[in-house]
Write a protein that binds this DNA or RNA. Structure first.
Lengths: 238, 238
DNA sequence: CGTCTGGTTGATCTAGATCAACAGGAGTGG
DNA sequence: CCACTCCTGTTGATCTAGATCAACCAGACG
């Protein structure tokens, strides 16, 4: 974790339109500007640990963070991936509980911190912000349900393709040949944990996708040779 | 579905202490009394269907209801079991969306219906009710996450034992010999769908549990011969 | 140069899905 | 009352996705 912590200007944040604060009134943004702190984190750093008290919210400006849960026997599962614009920690804050997951940096990230005091103040005086978080919680629940169903019903292959397509929707690029590609933000083993598999199975599945000319991989670069065929194979339920 | 629909008196509801309305001020309860409708439902009836518009909330007075999701290919999964005291439909109501699941009666039930108009009115004038639903949503999310992890990490056997223990915690009884038992509220195939397995596997797993003298089954009666050993086997994470 | 970490391959093993048959009720209707 | 079907649950036989264990390779890095 880098030592330098800097003040962050939320009002002019280039990714504010992606965040939970996109519609916040100017007045409140100004207030947040006085308290938001930005910091650079490196791979493996933790924003908070499972079981920690919640001191505030984290807003991801760039990079990728994984929410990871350890069970009694020490095994861990990646529950979800959070990227630019996502706010972490709202559940423990609103639920007056401890963090139920560990937020681990999976790719070097810039993250802003907003103390719970300022959030509480805003929540008390501006119920619309509370409403915003209720909606956020409802969609998180919806997504979690979808993930649950995928975990129960889909094969490793389908899960992997689904993961790739989600990334493609958010961060897909076009190379000079007009071929769609993405740069995988996380390591193979993290992909495995995310889709509920093992590094070995992910590796084999990748190989199979290559021989079928669906996706080509070069390290963390994944190029989609036949996007249509992929979409055909998975119903693309989000 | 029975034809008779009766007015329901929420104020004096014997299971109100189990519900989301347990702390509702008297004034609001009186208001709800004027609108709540109670009805008897039979196995297979539906409270609402996946994709339906949400017209109001359902509060289960007795019986059991399953939230079931159908995927594109028609396969269904039981997402969760709702019992006495549970309120269904709040997600679609608060999220201004359609129902994402079908609520199907798994065991003859008495269910009260409260129209969205009256709920909206209460929500507008009493933010504490909104807060209550936010908390409800947070715990539902927490539970869904736990279910997700179980689906990913546990064997059929562990899932089944976990299901039995949850029922035992809520509805466990003692017979004349001091032996703990429960009456399974739902059919084998529904148990299978709930824990992400098949009727065949559930049947085999039950048999194994019997030969190991952990649980004895007689139809829908399940007696725990050795509760301690069961708790040892599963970490009992809720 | 060794050491480490992440990724790929190979060989093996198993939980559990799938397919198929059948047994006991519970109705239903002649 | 029997014959019929329908439905749930149980058992048996088989098959496969994917976990596990083990070896190895290639960069990164002190």
């Amino acid at each position: 974790m880098s030592d330098e912590t800097a003040r962050h200007n939320c009002t002019d944040c280039p990714i504010r339109h992606l965040t939970d604060w996109q519609n916040l009134p100017k007045k409140l943004l100004k207030k947040m500007d006085r308290y938001a702190l930005r910091r650079q984190y490196e791979l493996g750093d933790k924003l908070y640990h499972q079981g920690d008290k919640c001191h505030g919210l984290f807003c991801i400006r760039s990079g990728f963070v994984g929410l990871r849960r350890y069970d009694v026997s020490g095994r861990s599962s990646l529950i979800k991936l959070a990227g630019p614009g996502d706010t972490l920690g709202y559940r423990a804050l609103l639920g007056h509980s401890t963090h139920s997951n560990t937020a681990e940096i999976l790719k070097a990230s810039e993250v802003c911190y907003i103390d719970r005091a300022i959030i509480s103040e805003i929540l008390q005086n501006h119920p619309s912000v509370g409403e915003r978080f209720l909606q956020r919680c409802l969609t998180d629940l919806e997504r979690m349900e979808a993930a649950y169903l995928r975990a129960k019903n889909l094969t490793t292959r389908e899960q992997l393709l689904h993961f790739l397509m989600i990334l493609h929707e958010q961060f897909g690029q076009l190379d000079e040949n007009g071929c769609h590609y993405i740069v995988l933000p996380i390591a193979r083993k993290d992909i495995a944990e995310l889709i509920g598999s093992t590094p070995e199975s992910v590796s084999r599945t990748i190989k199979k996708l290559e021989t079928e000319h669906l996706v080509q991989f070069e390290g963390r670069l994944a190029s989609f040779e036949n996007l249509g065929a992929i979409i055909d194979q998975i119903g693309m339920i989000h």
